[in-house]
Design a binder for these strands. Structure first.
Lengths: 239, 239
DNA sequence: ACGAAAATTGGAACGTGTTCCAAACTCTTG
DNA sequence: CAAGAGTTTGGAACACGTTCCAATTTTCGT
């Protein structure tokens, strides 16, 4: 269930070790971890926002209230674990086979957004819980390793577009990745807060991507992006 | 202190009525409201995140704990009131006198960001509190009226750029305003969560704006935006 | 197999946002 | 001025995230 196989990303050499070298103690701990994550996931799926309390999660997982704190540190960390457990995102990147690199970027966006589209209530709850950053250790919206991998994947897509002569190399892939990420997160934030309907999520993010990309595109790239911009704009105007 | 004079925006005809027609009862209520907002502001200024509890705010304001709930409804609403009380943002829009409409957009961004730059801790606390959207009535990051005014002001700046032949009118001012807002909010979110240093805030948002705008710019507009993109990129690379 | 180390456990406790309540107060209206 | 409506008040209460504690169980090294 949690067999996250990231083939196309360099392995850090730590992930699968934890499953093997740890003795019985480590193994039991891992099982408790997964039971807690599963309990939290099920609770969100069943009751949405309500009843997602640490006491409920602990009871459902069959552990004491203090155990999730020993294992994860905070409720936010548990929710983050649920989030990352459900999204084997990077994995499927390699399967994107659009004609050009720019279209592949939008395919990747569609892929990432498909999770939210298919299960809006679930992921909205997750996002809202993740935004609760009252503790001083607010790690952001993803684990550092996860974030690194995701960013690298996006950067590679952008660099492909540069190699294909669609994007101006004067604008760094790092710069563009950041800009795309911020545009996306801004839209996600609006969605999580209820200001953006689920149906508008894909067109909105795609429109943001298209505009940002076109801002650093070569004429060839701009020609690809222009119709997409207008199409997204129309879709949003109709909905 | 709260004399918010928005000259350049059509008056809704409700704002100042509240100050006059209400009798002594309304007046006392308004004074309690402002005492609560002021207490919350001072507490954030003095102690930052800590001790920003409703009980503290109430004590500081010299009112009962239940009064803020009667007057605002939730802690979030109180914080939102603090936020909007401090930012007489739209007011100064008319003073922007850059050469072309595009540069005026970036001036407006500088203006909006200047609040956060000058008092990062204060506004970071505010943002984090505003992101706490556990209640079902999460109104977003601004009051509806405020939001409407702000969006109208931005749209006008964009339309000016279109009138000056710098932006392609095929992309709606509404579309662009949305894209700019999302890009900005994404960066603000990262900043609020501590993932983006305060020094990077202006270059990052400006870079996002420049890319989005250039994505819908005419050749004339693109020529203005290109050096700005590179300049922001350099600034970020150095910092 | 035995002792030591590590973890979970149950329970209490703290401070939090929020709601409810009857009693007291204050302003408006007749 | 007096009845009345409209609010504030103090206090208790609830569920929550989180932390602390001593007691207990489970695993590891020898």
């Amino acid at each position: 269930m949690t067999d996250l196989i990231d083939i196309d990303v360099e392995n850090d050499g730590e992930a699968e070790d934890a499953f093997l070298d740890g003795g019985r103690r480590e193994q039991a701990k891992a099982e408790r971890r997964s039971r807690i994550v599963r309990a939290a996931r099920d609770l969100i799926r069943e009751t949405g926002d309500t009843d997602l309390s640490m006491r409920m999660i602990a009871k459902r997982a069959g552990v004491s209230l203090t155990t999730p704190y020993n294992l994860f540190g905070s409720k936010r960390a548990v929710v983050l674990a649920v989030f990352e457990d459900e999204r084997d995102f990077v994995v499927r990147f390699s399967r994107l086979k659009a004609a050009n690199a720019i279209d592949r970027i939008f395919d990747a966006n569609d892929l990432g957004m498909s999770y939210f589209i298919e299960d809006p209530d679930f992921y909205r709850t997750l996002w809202k819980a993740l935004l609760n950053t009252q503790g001083a250790d607010s790690t952001g919206l993803a684990t550092p390793e996860r974030l690194k991998r995701s960013r690298a994947a996006w950067r590679r897509l952008i660099e492909d577009a540069q190699d294909e002569g669609l994007m101006d190399p004067a604008v760094t892939s790092d710069t563009l990745e950041r800009a795309l990420s911020f545009a996306s997160n801004g839209a996600m934030l609006a969605w999580a807060m209820g200001a953006l309907p689920t149906a508008a999520l894909v067109p909105t993010t795609a429109l943001g991507y298209a505009l940002v990309l076109r801002g650093a595109a070569t004429p060839a790239g701009a020609a690809i992006l222009q119709p997409r911009i207008l199409r997204c704009q129309e879709t949003l105007a109709r909905g």
